[in-house]
Design a protein around this nucleic acid. Structure first.
Lengths: 132, 132
DNA sequence: CCGAAAGTTGACGTTCACGTAATCGAAACG
DNA sequence: CGTTTCGATTACGTGAACGTCAACTTTCGG
């Protein structure tokens, strides 16, 4: 069932990454595809993790930070100490994201204003050219 | 006037960067401090640019993208074509930021939920231990 | 005036996140 | 049954953004 298990190429097409990237994430222990013989096979869980990886990257997180966050998404058979540690890390990332969210709002407003100013300068320049 | 002109060390202390970083940004043409003899001196404009550089970095922009954006903040003596090009680039960055802003909102909600779930698992684990 | 402190210019090193090429085994296909 | 094709492994290369170290001036406090 191609809906359940995907080859590395299908994954690459689906997510817009290269085989190298998927093998690299695996080497860094971010995903753990099964093997059929020598070949890798990716299931729903792997796809979900990859989605989170790519999202994390868009927010500027390192692969290591993302790896730590992914533990949160594992109903994992780990102990209390590890769960607590993961939660602590996740709270820090969450705080990062909330700060970034707030700052992004400001930055968007700033940039929009600068674009407006530049547009004014531009139309002024065109106008003075036409009438000069 | 130390409020007007700052040495490289004062800049580093103020912005939390290293001298190497400031010289690197200068080599990449992101800032242009004056020289008193051999030494660099940074003015208000340089500080404003550095603020924008560090902000841009926090949003995951490359130094080259930031350099292009900085042109927008220069009341610059450039021609219409260049202003128009800068505006086009800036609009793209603005679109990037708006997408990021929207996605960040979702991601924050997701992560908060996962943290909640993990906290539940954690307290459950503690409870089962106490009563077991 | 002079020695420590601060700053300068190379130039090479480093980390992250992959890219790229070589070589190999397995698998699909006419 | 040979040959493309897909995938695996290994290893070296790369670009971005600095770190680090050496060798020199320059400047400032005592």
């Amino acid at each position: 069932m191609s809906d359940e298990l995907m080859t590395i190429r299908q994954m690459c097409d689906a997510f817009g990454v290269t085989p190298r990237t998927l093998r690299f994430y695996e080497a860094r222990e971010l995903i753990f595809p099964q093997r059929r013989g020598q070949h890798r096979l990716y299931d729903r869980r792997d796809r979900a993790r990859l989605t989170l990886i790519l999202r994390g990257k868009r927010f500027g997180f390192s692969l290591e930070q993302i790896r730590q966050l992914l533990e949160l998404y594992e109903p994992g058979s780990r102990n209390e100490t590890q769960i607590a540690a993961t939660i602590t890390i996740a709270r820090e990332r969450l705080a990062d994201m909330e700060r970034q969210y707030a700052e992004l709002r400001e930055a968007i407003a700033d940039l929009a204003e600068q674009i407006n100013d530049a547009e004014t300068r531009l139309s002024d320049a065109i106008h003075s050219k036409r009438s000069g």
